[in-house]
Structure formats: structure tokens, C-alpha cells
Amino acid sequence: MFKDIFRKTKYVTIKSGQNLDRRPSEVVPQEEPGIVTKKELPDGLWVKCPKCGEVLFNKNLEENSRVCTTCEHHFRISATLRLKLLVDEDSFEEWDADLKTQDSLDFPGYDEKISEAQEKSGMAEGVLTGRAKIEGVPFVIAINEAGFMMGSMGSVVGEKITRAIERAIKLRLPVVIFSTSGGARMQEGILSLYQMAKTSAALGKLAENHLLYISVVTDPTFGGVTASYASLGDIMISEPNALIGFTGPRVIKQTMRQELPAGAQTAEFNQEHGSIDLIVARNQMRPVLARLLRYHQEGARYGTTV
């Protein structure tokens, strides 16, 4: 059309699906929504934004917390990067890193899946837990790793989160959990399912102790994690455009023959329907959490310091 008239053909253009063959090593295949990127840090210098299609200089993307500099699309990030972006330098103390997955049901292919996930994510399991500080305020933190079997919750993830909550009670510290998960982990069967109850029960104890729990629900969070700890925050936060729901869009389509309207299950949709308090851009997460944590510090509570 008009664009073509003015286009100078000698420029190198990179369009989705057309000129990919020109610079194959520098272009990451477009992410499908709901599926985690195979590799977060491509070897190449360039990354294509799955939302606006803009080709971004990887270094610029890194500097912008992996948020598209054009459309502000929030790329999925690893637990370790999330931690680095969020907490005070050298303030993180990791807990329970030695808990190891066991193929307790002798499930077909599970051991291989675990090894693959470990290699891919560089993590032993699907969650990172410990304590840290934001602007000097101490708190307990847990971050799901999407690169580890889609952040699914088996025995280890459930146990690490439960222990983190229980220690928060002992230490009288608030808890912040960043979830990103496909749900309960199929390969550990009923044991995975009951991790939902276990983590929820621990959060019940935290609440009785008048301690704050902030749930930050990031892209994507579904199934058993949505139906347990991710939904129980005193304060519910999400990132722009994150997909959050109980049943995944594909399953709704298959089982109910129901086409979801555009924008369904996004953070904005969830906020509109009353499930999310705040949608916070990644570069604002640290100051927002710092304020909320500060307002909930022990001394701030009326009547007693417990």
C-alpha cells in the first residue's frame, strides 16, 4: 500500500514470517501466549517483541528489565533475574535449596523431565525461597520459575513455600510470593494436588498472626496455583497484560466450545472483575512493594506491637 511506495528496498527489514531466513540466529521465534520462551537470553543481539513485533536490541531490553521499549510488553523473566531486579543487593539468603525432587509415583518420563528442566532453568526446582530486603525492609520471598516445568507445583515447590511461610511466622516477617505456574504438577499425582491445601493452610496461620501476605501474580498463572496461594494475598498485584486464570484458554475452548472474548484472563480483565488490587509495571514493582511493606511494619499496627 502507501507504505510500499515510500519504502526504500535497500534497507534491511525484518518482518515476522517473511524475512526470517535472512538473519536466523538473531531473531527469536514469536512466543505463543501461554507458552514460555524456550530460551530467555538468546545468543543473538536482537529480540523480537511478541506483542508489537518490534525488533529490539537485546542489551536495551535487558536494561529495561526485559520490558519492550516500544509497547511495554513484559517479557517473562527467570526467578533469579526477578530477584536481582527487586531486592537490595546482597540481601538475599536462600532457604531449602537442597530439597530434591523424588519420582514417588514412578511416573513415565518424570526423571528425564526434571533433568531437562534443571538444565534449561539452571535451578534445582520450580521455586526460589528465602529472605531479603527491599529498601532495607526485611521480608520473606518466594519466586516461581516458569522455565522449570512451567513453574508447576509438586512436593518440593509446595514444601519450600510452606516452610518459607512458617519461618516468616517465627521471624514475624511479611511474605511476598511471585507466582507463575501452570498449576499442580501432574507427575506427582495426588501429592501435588495436596500441596495446594498445604500452602493455603500455612497462609491461614500467617493471617492469624497478623502478618502481611502480598501475592504478585505474573504471566502466566493458572490451575492449582491460582486455586491456592496465588489467590490468597491480602494485597493482590499483577504485571500489565499477565495471563491469570483457573482454566487455560485452550482447555476452555476445547471442553466448553466457548471462545473467550479478546483480553479475557489478562491482569486487566481480572482487575475489572475484582480479583486484582494493583497492576504494577515491572520497573515500579520495587518502590510499590517497599511502600506497602513499610506501611505494614510491626510498629504501624494500632493497639499493640505484639
Binding site: M196, S228, S231, L232, G245, G274
Partner: peptide, 11 residues
């Protein structure tokens, strides 16, 4: 809020 409804039940 199906997820929240179930989570509240558990808690």
C-alpha cells in the same frame, strides 16, 4: 474468580 473461591475453601 474460580481460583479464589477454591483457595478460600482450602484456607
Amino acid at each position: 474468580g474460580q481460583g479464589e473461591a477454591i483457595a478460600r475453601c482450602l484456607l
